Computed example of a mutant assay.
Amino acid sequence: MRAVTGATTSGELRLHNLLRLLRAAHDRGGEATRSELTRDLGLARGTAAVLVADLAEARLAQERPAPQRTRGRPTAMLGPHPEGPLALAVDLREDAWTIATAEIGGGLTVREEQPHPGNPPEAVLGDLAAAIGRYLAELGPRIVGVGVALPGPIRDGRVVDIPHLSWRDVPAVEMLSVGAPPVSLGNDAALAGLAEARRGGLRGIPVGLHLHVDFDLGGALLVDGNPLQGARGTTGEFGHMPLGGSTLRCDCGAVGCWALQVGATALLRATGTPVEPGHARAGARRVLAQADEGEPRCVAALEEVARAFGAGTAALVNALDPGRVTLSGVGARIHDQATGMFATAYRDGLMTFRREQPPPVLPAALGADATVVGAAELAFDVFLTAAGLTAWQSAH
């Protein structure tokens, strides 16, 4: 019945199937053969052949020879077209940004990494808008959307709050929109989790927890590959839960935040180093490097933060019941350098019945690329719609 697809004409049905096929090729990383996609989508072979030809003619995707797995007839994989759509992905951190392009299937090319002063937001976002404008001019209509990851809660196209940088209610979409492609914002931790769910360590996990640690920490609970958004779209601020027993007041306004004990600023605080807003990440890397060399004060700080990190992670596991936990940012390095301390605190914090089969805690499979990959997925989610494909076909 056509009611299932919403298509009421043959043209709408064809567009629906083109979209299904392109989305499946993207989700499979450009590594699925036509026969695999035909089977998985329940298409007739003749229909699939026509759709693949249509995608190639529209420069949306094309087939390339697949590695020969068995003896027999050669096959091909459906992946990116050399003149096909690109997502522009931005990872805007407290002290720098990364700009990359991603093609259908998720293949990533880093184009630029630049430091920025952190404040005022108008200057930072103005410079970033200029950089985005350069890539729109260079790559033209191939850019189908811009996804931007930011280190704070996002609502209605605005940055709600980045306390330590004094960014509050910043109209980021308005400030970054410099051309026709839509600009989409996402929280950096949630987008790192989205990337892990689609292309990394949480792929195929029905309920996964991702924790992204930078100057402090946030994360996402992912159900069937999608981060839960919350009633107002600002869920995942795990760093602002009182999981560590602190009595200090956080920059966010709450007392006892877990972020006071875990993250780049926490590492610096534990060594007695003054925390300069916008520069905690660089300082934390130095602390971790010195801890790796055995410097006593830095080793003690690392162990203190790892203990709080493991205990708080256990609290979230007790409450949320994920099947797996992944870590990105500074969190992955804290875990790797103080695995024993983290593991002990994590296990001790779990309810007894959970200790029999505790959810594994693993570094992000995508490593440092997790957030920018998530930003690319955010842009492709806007493009891979009937409206997005129709706009592409009209422009090409």
Rank of each mutant, 00 (worst) to 15 (best):
V317F: 09
W167E: 03
A49K: 06
W392E: 10
A44H: 14
G200K: 06
T8D: 11
A89W: 08
T352D: 14
H81T: 09
H116L: 04
D161H: 14
R285A: 13
A24L: 07
A149L: 03
A32K: 07
A259P: 01
L139P: 12
P115M: 02
P163R: 02
A259H: 04
L327K: 06
F380I: 10
G186P: 03
L267M: 08
L86F: 03
E196C: 05
P82D: 11
P359G: 05
L221P: 01
V148D: 06
E293I: 00
D127K: 07
A231P: 01
A24K: 09
V124Q: 05
E295V: 15
G157L: 03
D91K: 05
T352C: 01
P151D: 11
L384T: 12
P80K: 12
A66R: 09
A343S: 15
A137W: 00
L128R: 05
A386C: 08
N17P: 00
N17L: 14
E237K: 00
L327N: 03
L43Q: 05
E377P: 07
R71N: 11
N318V: 09
L260V: 04
Y135M: 00
A386K: 14
E196N: 07
E12N: 06
A49T: 13
D321I: 03
G46I: 01
H212A: 14
H16F: 15
L108C: 08
E112H: 13
D381H: 13
L13F: 11
E276G: 00
R307P: 00
S177I: 07
N187W: 08
L185C: 06
A96P: 00
G84C: 09
V223A: 03
G84P: 02
A391E: 14
G331A: 12
G225Y: 03
A368C: 01
A270N: 10
R203M: 10
D216S: 13
E237I: 01
V50H: 12
G133M: 02
L21V: 15
A282V: 14
L243S: 06
I143F: 02
D127F: 00
Q393E: 13
P242V: 10
G230A: 03
V90I: 14
L211Q: 04
R34A: 14
G157N: 02
E83M: 05
R347M: 10
F309K: 06
L150P: 00
T235Q: 03
L260D: 04
P85D: 11
E293M: 12
T235C: 04
G349N: 08
E112Y: 05
E94H: 13
V275I: 12
G331K: 10
P121F: 02
I162Y: 02
E112K: 11
G6P: 11
A192P: 03
C298L: 01
R324V: 09
A386M: 10
L350K: 10
L221I: 11
L194M: 08
R307N: 07
E31K: 15
T9D: 12
Q261A: 13
V183P: 04
T339E: 12
D156V: 00
P360G: 07
L362W: 07
A289V: 04
T265N: 07
P151N: 08
L139C: 04
T8W: 12
A395P: 02
W167G: 03
